[in-house]
Amino acid sequence: MTNTSSIDIEYVANLARLDLTENEKKKFSAQLEEVLKYFERINEVDVTDVEPMAHAFPVFNVWDEDRAEEGFTVEEALKNAPAKRDDQIVVPKVVE
């Protein structure tokens, strides 16, 4: 990564829990630099007093009444699990 680079690829890859090869790091850094530079265009427009838009259409209170419905059987829940034991999913030892 060059000194002018604004993207700390190691830090971001760590947040995203993604192992990148040295090649990928180099390639992505360069490509993302270019894309981010292109993104700077959004600074050209004045957004003072403009509300951010999180949803296409503003609707409120889309909710269900509190009631329980049938869910998965244990078999359905674990159908795609890569490793299981005693109706639980097994993972390599969890480190805090």
């Binding site: 998965f72 244990v74 829940a77 674990l78 639980q88």
Partner: peptide, 8 residues
Amino acid sequence: PPNSLTNP
């Protein structure tokens, strides 16, 4: 019992 209260 484990994993008996789930859904998609």
